[in-house]
């Protein structure tokens, strides 16, 4: 495991020459839009693969997580599975980066908070017109839903935030470049946005 040294009030990854930075990502209650934006770094990916190792996430379908430097989390927390994944990320990543409106503020998934979980499920599975065999789904395979959708920093410590819906590719570019160069990321004003 590489060490992290605090510089100012943030942490920057320190690494040995030739050693790659280990990155993992996940999408909790999100739409994968942030991941799409992350892939939108275009030709930078050629440079990035020399320095970063993508060890876990929806892009390679690996579930295991160990000794990760940077965890990139998209999406809010809407069910118990989301909570477990986030807990795993926090426990195994030196730095946790919340990306996108859902991870940071709850975003679109959190709109259900205005109505309450019970009302939403009743409308969808019991009361709506055309429902046959009205029943609230219950299956061991189905993660149970939380009372409220929450942004991730309400539940774990988050080290960096990349706002936006999704954050522009340029913001990911700056994040990865800064990691590679071992400096604090610096975002231009137009990269920090809330919509």
């Amino acid at each position: 495991m590489r060490s992290t040294t605090p510089q100012g009030n943030c942490d920057v990854i320190q690494r040995e020459p030739g050693q790659k930075i280990r990155i993992a990502s996940c999408s909790l209650a999100g739409c994968f839009g942030c991941h799409m934006s992350m892939l939108d770094i275009d030709e930078l990916v050629v440079e990035v693969v020399h320095h970063l190792e993508y060890c876990r996430g929806p892009l390679n379908d690996v579930r295991e997580l160990r000794d990760v430097d940077v965890g990139v989390v998209e999406g809010a927390l809407c069910n118990e599975d989301n909570v477990k994944v986030l807990e795993q990320f926090r426990a195994n990543c030196d730095l946790l980066v919340a990306v996108g409106a859902c991870a940071i503020n709850g975003g679109l998934p959190a709109m259900r908070n205005h109505f309450g979980l019970t009302a939403c499920l009743k409308e969808a599975y019991l009361d709506a017109e055309g429902v046959v065999n009205p029943e609230i789904p219950r299956d061991a395979e189905l993660p149970r839903l939380l009372n409220r959708v929450r942004p991730i920093q309400e539940v774990v410590k988050v080290d960096y935030f990349l706002p936006g819906c999704p954050p522009p590719a340029a913001a990911f570019t700056e994040l990865f470049t800064a990691l590679i160069e071992g400096r604090e990321p610096a975002f231009d004003e137009d990269m920090v946005r809330f919509d």
């Binding site: 118990e80 019970t118 219950r138 149970r144 839903l145 009372n147 409220r148």
Partner: peptide, 11 residues
């Protein structure tokens, strides 16, 4: 605690 509603709904 956060799962209380769904547990009630599904019995």
């Amino acid at each position: 605690q956060e799962l209380s509603e769904i547990k009630t709904l599904t019995g």
